[in-house]
Design a protein around this nucleic acid. Structure first.
Lengths: 120, 120
DNA sequence: ATGAACTATGAACCTTGGTTTATAGCAAGA
DNA sequence: TCTTGCTATAAACCAAGGTTCATAGTTCAT
């Protein structure tokens, strides 16, 4: 599979594939080269990249993912994942509160909008 | 109230207060100047800034908040808030799935980690 | 066998949300 | 009054996560 097809199947621009590769975010086992030096991607890279995208969306940084992908100690990886689960749970709680706030804004009940209106 | 106190009460660095002001994110009504050209902040700005921080954390961009704060049409503001509520709901759904994924990673059940291990 | 589309590389560039620096004028307690 | 700390400004800088550019070789349908 070449870059273009990976791009199609992951919805990531080819430039992003290169960017991730530069960052060492794509283990070498997923990529080889053909006789023209073109990258040849393993089928599995598609699912892998989808996972990476999900984790990035979730708030993992590339640096953090490198820990998961690298040969860091299992303890370090576990700690990282646990921290992130905690972070997600906190985020979920905040999101609940925020939805209420936004609904109040819609209903004109939030002070925020009152203050904004007062400004004009 | 001067910058330092606003900073203390909002936990935002003074540099950030200036940055938000430069971006027009702080309505003029909240800030005046004393005889030395020092900014004098209204009491209400503290709560306002806390709301702004929350909305930024939520995924609003500064550009979007400017729409809410500005004299844009109420329809535009309402649409923006509705979009964001939708976005939050989608995010919540994704977070649920992601927690499961991360727990699988912890349990060694996720393909992601398998692939990472395979890479070494 | 040719032109449009794909691939390669390194380096420069971009956007967002801030922070830091350089320079200078007030403040306020010891 | 001296010193430490707050205030002002514009402009430069930063980190993250990518994207674009310049240049050159490759592929494939027509």
């Amino acid at each position: 599979m070449r870059a273009n097809e990976v791009s199609r199947r992951t919805a990531l621009p080819v430039s992003t594939l290169r960017f991730y590769e530069r960052k060492q975010l794509i283990p070498e086992t997923f990529i080889s080269r053909d006789e023209n030096n073109y990258r040849v991607y393993d089928e599995e890279v598609v699912q892998y990249l989808q996972d990476v995208r999900m984790l990035l969306t979730l708030g993992f940084t590339i640096e953090e993912l490198l820990v998961l992908v690298s040969e860091s100690s299992p303890a370090a990886k576990t700690a990282l994942v646990r921290d992130k689960i905690t972070y997600i749970q906190e985020l979920e709680a905040k999101l609940e509160a925020s939805k209420n706030f936004l609904n109040d804004v819609l209903a004109g009940k939030a002070n925020f909008q009152t203050r904004c209106r007062a400004a004009h």
